[in-house]
Amino acid sequence: MTRRPPLALAVPAGLGVMFLALPLVGLVQRAPWAAVGHQLASHEVRQALRLSLVTSLAATALAVVLGVPLAWVLARVSFRGRALVRALALLPIVLPPVVGGVALLLAFGRRGLLGGWLAALGVRLPFTTAGAVVAETFVAMPFVVLATEAGLRSLDPRYEEAAATLGARPWSVFRRVTLPLLAPSLGAGAALCWARALGEFGATITFAGNLPGRTQTMPLAVYVALESQPDGAIALSLLLVAVSVVVLVLLRRRLFPA
């Protein structure tokens, strides 16, 4: 490791740190510390908090159920169009979330591609809590796919081969050998997915709308409160920052192996 970085790198690196840190400093120094507890205890905030926990956990579960098999197929099966499917699985990371929300409306909305079928089943997604879960899943699932596929690729294939040689069927191998070995990667992917789902704004407000108690999650509440109750918005923001920091601290070994 170099001890003294060249100035040409040290200066922009320092600027980069300041650029990332200053908004957080701003948030912390403007925070109404004495009133944070009071702000977070208000009915509206607790309602948004509860809704955010429910929707982000449901979105993470859904993303794992769909994303892990998808990652397995991408890592273990070679088929035509695999690169395309992988790009599709990662697209929501780079897609503006509002665009994702509009696309979801055009697919699952009342007049969307599947709108008629969903209506026949009695399912309505826009303006419902289920819709908020769908929006969060769409945006956050790539993290599960990404982390799980990377984990699968770094697994020593001999464990799976040995199990198969001993007569285990493929599903058995997956469940009893692959999945346990995969747990750390899957855990990291799920945690990132959850953090992203918790912070989701654009796709949610576009697809699920904004109604306290039903679709107004924490980021929407922050946005709505920003002008009318800035102190409440800052208190909520601090909470979201704290959650993000906790997730990163818990994942530091996974993300940056020493």
Partner: peptide, 11 residues
């Protein structure tokens, strides 16, 4: 004197 339950309060 009408009370309506909106599906969403848009921005």
């Amino acid at each position: 004197h009408v009370s309506v339950h909106p599906a969403s309060l848009e921005q």
